[in-house]
């Protein structure tokens, strides 16, 4: 699902102040420089742009054990029922 990849990379790029260039699937989430505010905003944008609902609790780290941007994209694809 290339479109979800593109949408996700674009959303993450808007929040990844830790990066000097655009994120890729291989980029580590810890390198993005995102804070608790950004995580909530990213999820909101994902929900708006992909018309899906992401179940999460703002007091928990919704990224769980994900390590790379690719892990995050795959999780979103699963929610979107496209994988």
């Amino acid at each position: 699902m290339a479109d979800i990849d593109a949408v996700m990379l674009d959303i993450i790029k808007g929040h990844a102040i830790g990066l000097t260039s655009g994120p890729t699937r291989e980029t580590l989430i810890t390198d993005l420089g995102i804070d608790s505010f950004s995580i909530v905003e990213i999820i909101y944008e994902v929900e708006e742009k992909l018309s899906i609902e992401v179940p999460f609790n703002a007091n928990e780290n919704p990224l769980g054990n994900m390590k790379t941007v690719g892990d995050l994209i795959d999780a979103v694809k699963k929610l979107a029922g496209k994988e």
């Binding site: 505010f37 909530v40 905003e41 999820i43 909101y44 929900e47 708006e48």
Partner: peptide, 9 residues
């Protein structure tokens, strides 16, 4: 439109 999730904060 859904409220922005950070509105409360």
């Amino acid at each position: 439109k859904r409220p922005h999730p950070l509105s409360i904060l």
